[in-house]
Simulated scan of single mutants.
Amino acid sequence: MASLGWKVTRALFAVGERVAPSVAGRAAFELFSRTPSPRAQTEGERKAVSRAADFMRTARHHTLTVGADCVAVHEFRPDAGSGEAGRVLVVHGWRSRTEYMKTIIEGLRVAGFRVFAVDLPGHGQSTGRRLTIMKAVDTLASAGQWFGPFDLLLGHSFGGAAAVDAVSAAQKSATPLAARLALIAAPNSMSDILHGFSEEIGIGRRSRDNMVARIERLAGRSLEDFTGSRQLPRLRTPVLVVHAHDDREVPAGDARALAEAGSHVDLHWAPGLGHRRILSDAGVVSRVVSFAKAAMPLAKAG
C-alpha cells in the first residue's frame, strides 16, 4: 500500500501535469536524482555496514573530487608476498555502498587482485545528495585516471549501467578503462527505469517529456543512448552478465537483452538469488573471479 507521502506526491504531480508540466518535470528530475538520506538506513542496512566494519578497516582509503562531491575510493590489496594478478574496479548500485560488495571484493582479493571500490556520490562515505548516470560515469572515469587502467570493471545494478557507459566512453579515447566488464543484476535501459519511476510517482506525458529533455540537455545526448544492448555491440570488451530469474528490481529480460548484444557477451544465470543475495553467493564469486583471471593484464603493480 502506498504511503501517505507518495499519495500526496502523486496528487501534486497530477496537478502539475495540468497547469505547469515544465515545473513538474523539473521537480520530477530532482526527485529522480535525489539519493537516499544517510540517516534513513533500515535496520538490515545498519547491520550490514556494522558487519563489514573490520573488512573496511583493511582498506586504504582515497578521496577523489568529482564535480562538487568528494568521492571515497577504497583500495583492498592482495596478501603481502602473493603477487598481484591485476586490478579491478568495483561499483555498487543505488542505495548501496562498498560494504555490500564485501564478498565479491574478498573473493577477488584472495585471488590476487588489487581491488578499488568506489562509493558513488550520495552513497557510503562519499558526499552529495544527487546522483545521475552522467555523474556516475564521471566518477568511474576519474577512478580510471588515478588508479587504472583495470583488468576488470564490475558493476551491480545501477552501477552496471554506469559501467557500460563508462567503458563505452573510454573506448573513444587512447586509454582504455578496463579490459573486461562484469554486470551483475544490471538494467539494460535507463529509459525503462525512468518510465517505471514516472509511473510510480504518477507524472503525466508532458511532465515526463520535460524531465527527459532536461536529462538530455545535461547529458548532451539522447536518453536512448543509455541502453546497454545498443552500447555493448560497439564494444571490443568481453562482457559477463550475471542475473537471477527471480530478480524483482531488474527483470530477467534485461539480462537477455544484454546477452543478445554479441558473442563477446556471456550470460550466467544465478537461480533463486534475487537482486542483492546474488552478491554474496559463492558460485557467483567464483564465476566472476574466473572471468577476471582471463583478462590480459592491463594494470601495473605498484
Rank of each mutant, 00 (worst) to 15 (best):
F226P: 00
D225E: 06
E216Q: 11
R221N: 13
E216F: 07
A219V: 03
R230G: 12
R217V: 09
L232W: 12
P238V: 08
F226A: 07
H245L: 13
I215D: 03
S222Q: 09
F226I: 03
R230L: 15
G228W: 15
R230Q: 08
G228S: 14
G228V: 12
E224N: 10
A244S: 15
P238A: 02
R234N: 10
L240H: 00
P238G: 05
F226G: 02
R221Q: 13
L223V: 06
A244D: 14
L235N: 03
I215V: 12
G228A: 15
H243C: 11
R234C: 09
S222V: 07
G220D: 09
H245A: 11
S229H: 14
T227K: 02
L235W: 08
G220R: 10
R236G: 15
Q231W: 00
H243W: 14
E216C: 08
G220T: 10
H245G: 08
L218K: 11
D225M: 03
S222L: 10
R217S: 10
L232R: 07
L240R: 02
E224Y: 09
D225K: 01
L235M: 15
R217P: 11
R234Y: 04
T237M: 11
R217H: 08
F226L: 13
R221H: 14
R234H: 13
F226C: 00
T237R: 07
S229I: 00
L232V: 13
P233M: 05
A219D: 10
A213N: 10
T227R: 13
S222I: 08
F226N: 01
E224S: 14
V242E: 03
I215L: 15
P233D: 04
V242D: 03
G220A: 11
H245P: 00
S229Q: 12
P238Q: 01
D225V: 02
V239K: 04
A213M: 04
V241Q: 03
S229M: 07
R236T: 10
V242W: 09
S229D: 09
R221A: 14
E216I: 08
H243Q: 15
P233E: 08
A213Y: 01
L218C: 03
H245K: 12
L223Q: 07
R214D: 07
L232K: 06
I215H: 08
V239T: 12
I215K: 04
F226T: 00
L240W: 04
G220L: 07
S222R: 10
L223C: 01
T237P: 08
L223H: 02
R234V: 12
P233C: 13
R234M: 14
P238E: 01
